[in-house]
Design a protein around this nucleic acid. Structure first.
Lengths: 344, 344
DNA sequence: ATGAAATGCTAAAACCTTTTATCACTTGAG
DNA sequence: CTCAAGTGATAAAAGGTTTTAGCATTTCAT
């Protein structure tokens, strides 16, 4: 990183001086604007490169009214959801010179307001709001801002642009995978019913089974998996041959409980999870077949939408559902095993 | 958020116009600089508040050469370590109007360079480098930057300022907890020896046992926990009465394996982990007693150091070790149980 | 040879704020 | 009554960039 003799970063003034041209000519040459002699242009560019000139984004932003930075507001201090999404946003934008301010509000309205004010003062080109839960509202009013707002893993008002995982499609993917492996008595053990995502997954599960099926709602966490398994094994009805879980944690609890009861996964009962939370899914024994919500892709999409918005391009408002993916590990048997089971 | 009639954000010009004073007077009044009549000052302030004036940080930064933003560069896409630290940094700085750019490099040198250039262009006041591993070097050269660099959960060159968890003290905490509960044959099952943190924890473990003890190095993950337990249970020597694990994941594997072998935790063997990674530690059965590295506090400290550096205050270079904390859950028995065991 | 058009460059304004130097005016002391 | 000091306000410069309008100069067609 070169600097001029007086220690500061090289400015376009230094370039102009060294090239023996005016500041405007230097600017024109570097940006390909106006009428410039090819020879002059090359000379200026060469000198700029030599002394390591890079335009001051503050000055540029002041003039263009675009700071090339956006704010991301999250209530997540833990990181499981936010960081993959932020990485996706950032990845989509860094090639366009846009950087991302990350603001963790910790669910504190005061902090949220403080962060928002700082972002607006810094003239961010837009704001992406993210939550740990689809149906969680921001702690500050984002509806009357003079800049575009995009919701990622959150649902904004109808007129806004939102990106959320396609829970419906994801749940269908899970159930259809089980069906394709020949399972018919599929149970759904999931989280609390007041979560929007939980209700959607349950609805899709029922739809995939033609309206049949049984859903057990409960708290998040492994304990509920244990508890739910205990309940179904101590009742008379026929046992399920597969369990679709609303989260990887629940699935892990379920699998551990099944083992404790002497049942083997996947040969006695197949299990599929939801989240593809690596630390849980990969470490479960057997490793968990589960649904990946594509958070990084979701972030990337949100970032691209933001880019269009800041460039004045029209973006369709409403909710964009990002497709989930099935990640096959061992807890349902492999696809091959499934095939042979079908053909036998 | 009020705006002027022409739609843009209110500027100090609007304030001056509305108050019937010059721009300089308005600025002086708002900032308490220069000589200003008390009555004028109040009037200007009142009007500024009324029309919702907030100074443009870009213009201000251009003049003061302080952008009131810093960059945070991480190679972590997963978030377990980075987000708590970022939240800590952000929390320490938001009250001073400083915002944080988060840059996930995904371990890609090209991306790292791109991010760094964008940060420098935006005139960030400093950069905090973070890694998922203490002994991981940045993918770009940070040693010749014109702005201060702080290392968080990473060790920079001698002349720089670094913050890392006190692995030594943390490991001692774990071993001493086990000793205080009456355990004497304490085994250490941990990660790969080429990790700096692993070697430190192992050294502290040995030191706490007066140079005795046995360390089993292996890969991270639960599998290694299973494998290690299998080894020690199939050999003739006397069994350990406690196991100190180098990570919560390993600890979970250990506990599960012990249960599989018919041993009970904590009554047969006590187990303590390292990380306090909530999803693992809280869900393990029994819930894991473990060491918390205080990542948020580490981030806060790094943020405060950065604040001092950007204000030209001297900051001692070198490595700052942040104290770990013991989090008691159930896998060693409770402290009370320990007390009664000692007194019996 | 002459007017029009094209070419290459530059001065100046604009973005918004803070600070410095300066001006006009009042007050108080001698 | 005069001079010095103090008071309250302001014009202008500075920070770094881009863009607009304009100025010479050259080229070309007539």
């Amino acid at each position: 990183m070169m600097t001029t003799s007086h220690g500061r970063r090289a400015t376009i003034r230094d370039v102009a001086l060294a090239a023996g041209v005016s500041i405007s000519t230097a600017s024109n040459a570097l940006n390909g604007q106006g009428r410039t002699n090819a020879e002059t242009r090359d000379r200026v560019k060469h000198i700029a490169e030599k002394i390591g000139f890079r335009p001051n984004a503050l000055a540029r932003g002041l003039l263009s009214r675009r700071s090339h930075s956006i704010g991301m507001i999250t209530n997540d201090t833990y990181g499981r959801l936010t960081l993959p999404m932020t990485a996706g946003v950032s990845e989509a934008l860094v090639d366009h010179g846009v950087s991302v301010f990350l603001c963790a509000t910790n669910n504190d309205p005061r902090l949220a307001r403080l962060h928002l004010e700082a972002l607006l003062d810094k003239q961010v080109d837009g704001i992406i709001f993210t939550a740990t839960r689809l149906d969680l509202a921001p702690q500050v009013d984002l509806s009357r801002l003079p800049i575009p707002v995009v919701y990622a893993f959150a649902e904004g008002p109808d007129t806004s642009v939102s990106f959320v995982p396609d829970d419906h499609q994801g749940a269908r993917l899970a159930v259809e995978h089980l069906l394709s492996l020949g399972h018919r008595r599929i149970l759904h053990i999931t989280g609390p019913e007041d979560f929007a995502a939980v209700r959607r997954r349950a609805a899709a599960y029922r739809a995939s089974l033609g309206g049949e099926g049984e859903v057990m709602f409960g708290p998040w966490g492994e304990d509920w998996g244990h508890e739910a398994v205990h309940r179904i094994l101590t009742r008379p009805e026929p046992r399920p041959d597969a369990i679709f879980c609303g989260s990887d944690e629940t699935a892990r609890g379920v699998i551990d409980a099944l083992r404790d009861h002497g049942l083997s996964v996947p040969s006695d009962i197949a299990v599929v999870g939801f989240d593809n939370w690596h630390v849980v899914a990969a470490q479960t024994r057997p490793a968990l077949t589960t649904i990946d919500m594509g958070l990084k892709e979701l972030g990337r999409r949100a970032g691209l939408a933001m880019l269009d918005l800041t460039q004045g391009k029209p973006v369709a408002s409403g909710i964009n559902y990002i497709a989930c993916e099935l990640v096959v590990r061992a807890s349902c048997g492999t696809d091959l095993a499934g095939q042979s089971l079908m053909s036998s």
